[in-house]
Every structure is written in C-alpha cells, then in structure tokens.
Design a protein around this nucleic acid. Structure first.
Lengths: 214, 214
DNA sequence: GTCTATAGTGAGATAGAC
DNA sequence: GTCTATCTCACTATAGAC
C-alpha cells in the first residue's frame, strides 16, 4: 500500500483490469501503456513480452487469493466447517476484486496461447493454482474418509465448487439478468455466500436417511 | 446430416472449433478459410463480417442445446425429477461436443466486443439463452413453491448449476489435472452426470430434519 | 461462388537518443 | 527509465477478374 506504486506495479494493475475485461488477445500493449500513463515502448523495460506481463498478472491474482485462503487451510476444524470457511473465503475473495473471477476463468482458455513458448512465470502461476486446488481436495477427502461427507467423487466435487463460485462472479450481464440486480452488491455477495455454503453443506453431508433411491 | 454440407455450414463447423479453442479475438479469418478449404475472401460472400460469423456460430450451438433440453421441459413430472433430467441433458449435451462448453463460457466475455455495433444475429442467440435459463428457473421455482425443495434463492441456484456444469467441461488441462484423466471419456461423463444430479438432489431437497444450525 | 491482389489499419517488438 | 521512430507482420475488409 505505497502512496506511489512503482511503474511496474502500476502496469500490472491496469493490465489486470484490461486482461480481465477483454482477454489476452483482445488487449493491445498500446492500451496498457496509455492506461498506465506511459509510452508503449516503456513496457518492454519492465516486461520482456506481452506474454510475460500476462503471466505475471495472473500469478499476482492467484497469490492474492491463496493468501486469503491460507489461514482457513491451517485452521484445526472438522472438514465440514473448514469447507464452509473455505467457500466463504473464496466467495469474499472473488467479490472483492471484480477482475479476479474473469481473469481466472479466462486463464482456462488462454494458457493454450503459451504452449509453444511458455514464459517461466506461467509455471509459478500454475503451481499456485495447483496448491489451492490440492488444499480443498484435502478437505473433501478428509470429510469423506471421516464419514462426515457422503462418498462423493472428490475431483468432481472440486470441479463443481470451483465452477459454481467462479462462474457466478464472472457471469456479467447474463448473471445480472438471472439475479435481477448487480452481482457485486453487498446483498448479492452475502446471499451467494450463504447459498453456496448451504448448497454444498446439504449436498455433501452424510445422512442416516439417504434419498438415493429417488 | 447431408453427405456434402454447404460451404456455409462447413465454415460454421470449422469456425465453431476455432472460436471455442482460441476465442473471438484470437482467431483470424485466414485460419477459418484455410480450415474450410476456401480462400479468405470467399468468407465474405457468406457472412458480412467476422462478428456476424461468430454470432451465428454461437446461436447454432445454443439452439442445438435447447433442442436437446426442450422435451425435458415439457415432460409432466414433479420438479425434482424434471430437474434431474434437465441436468442429465445438459451434461450429455456439453459432453457430446467438446466445443460447446468453451464457446458458451467464452461468450460470457466476448459479448462485450459487440456492444458498439451488435449484429442482429446476437439478439437471436441471447433470446435462445434467455429461454433456456427461464426454463430451468421455472423448474426450480415450482420445486420451491411446492415444498419439494428447500427455500433456496432460485437465481443463485441457477447460477451454481450453470457454473458447475459448464465450467467442468470447459476446464481443459486444469480439470483433467483434478480428475486425473480425460474430461470427455465415457466414464468421466457418466460420473459427472451422477455427481451433479446427486449434489443438487441432496443440496435442494427439503428435509424434515434440517442441519442449518451447523 | 471462388479466386488474386490490395487497401488500410494496428499489432508486438526493437533501436537508439536523452 | 522514458521517449520517438521504425521494423515486420497479421489482421479485416474490399475490388474486380473469372
């Protein structure tokens, strides 16, 4: 929280907003430079290429999220409670910066742009993401083996959890049409927190009286 | 199912694959033309612009999905059963063409490219999507008012359902890393069908013995 | 209906002055 | 560390022959 961030940080900030809005291919370095108050060529003194800039922005976003979720992982709580805290942290983290969900969802697709010559920064971002996924996977596995959760497929459940939460905040006009109001308003965020936690609580908790025969 | 599709259909087919893989801004018409076995200029005899081609491809994909889900909507079944059929149809439809989920997820972002001069085809695609969302919304509302489902927020639940299903099949390498195998294999698709339906069945069904005090 | 040729624009990246 | 100028390349779209 410096009063005057370095040019490098400023570039990352504006690039995060632009990449989130229009994607890797849709953003020109000219636009980034203008938004950062610099000439286009000056960017190349801070980043070797557009690809490196993008990967560094992605890694920043992932680390920001992982820092937020880290204390939850270390909390000595039973799996169901820890999962709820993790979901709440994820929702709050996604709600805090509207750029995050869009950048992360887009990252699914745009990593293919770098298969030819992946910048070293991409590997860091992938490791950060893999760590977060591994963390929530452990929570679910613990819950299943302890008998607190139904014997669900942990990988598929992880996918559903990520998809439901990230998609929601990335859904833009479509999501606002479904909700009938803003996605990032305080009330909508709070509701998303409770809806998602209760959906997965009811959906996962083991029951003495299953309805699988429905 | 013609033996020799028209040039127009051929262009749409290859464009669907390319747009799904690299997005609107990431695909050049040169690439589309080459893949269709045509010269680049020939595309402009079939489509007025790149934007029109994209919107027509998007509408085709949405209509393909809606046709598949239409019989489920009209089925005279209680809400919980109809929701399960709807989810199974959605999963099967997404699994059938690996391009679909990616194209639809990307459409979230890329509609912003057309706010300046939206092609008329875009409105058709948006209507098709709005219809499908309205359909599943009605199922959920029916289930909540009949007391079969908990008193969840229908809009948030719709968002979670769409997010979980579409994200899963669009998640590419990340999803395959989580699953430890291919996303579109017969076994993985079948498992996704049962995991998603049972997650929402357990997550939504009203219970005489709630655990909301957890 | 498809082609070649090209207009016109903007992209990422580099060189070198200051 | 920022700038101007420039290189090279790819893009969308058009014109007009066949």
């Amino acid at each position: 929280m410096h009063a005057s961030p370095s040019s490098r940080d400023k570039i990352c900030e504006v690039a995060e907003a632009l990449f989130a809005r229009r994607g890797y291919a849709g953003v020109g370095l000219r636009e980034v430079a203008d938004a950062a108050g610099l000439g286009k060529s000056s960017l190349f003194h801070h980043f070797r290429s557009k690809a490196q800039l993008y990967c560094e922005v992605l890694d920043r976003v992932l680390r920001r999220m992982r820092e937020r979720l880290d204390p939850v992982i270390r909390a000595p709580l039973p799996a169901p409670e820890r999962l709820e805290r993790w979901i709440e942290g994820l929702v709050d983290g996604l709600a805090e910066h509207p750029t995050t969900s869009r950048l992360l969802l887009r990252a699914l697709f745009e990593e293919e742009e770098f298969i030819q010559a992946p910048p070293p920064e991409l590997a860091r971002a992938e490791q950060t993401l893999a760590g977060m996924i591994g963390d929530v996977q452990k929570i679910l596995e613990e819950g299943v083996t302890s008998g607190a959760f139904r014997p669900v497929s942990v990988p598929h459940t992880v996918q559903s959890l990520i998809g439901a939460s990230v998609y929601h905040f990335a859904s833009a006009e479509i999501g606002e049409g479904v909700l009938g109001g803003p996605l990032f308003g305080a009330e909508a965020v709070s509701r998303q927190r409770t809806e998602l936690t209760s959906l997965f609580r009811h959906g996962l908790i083991a029951r003495p009286d299953p309805v699988d025969d429905l």
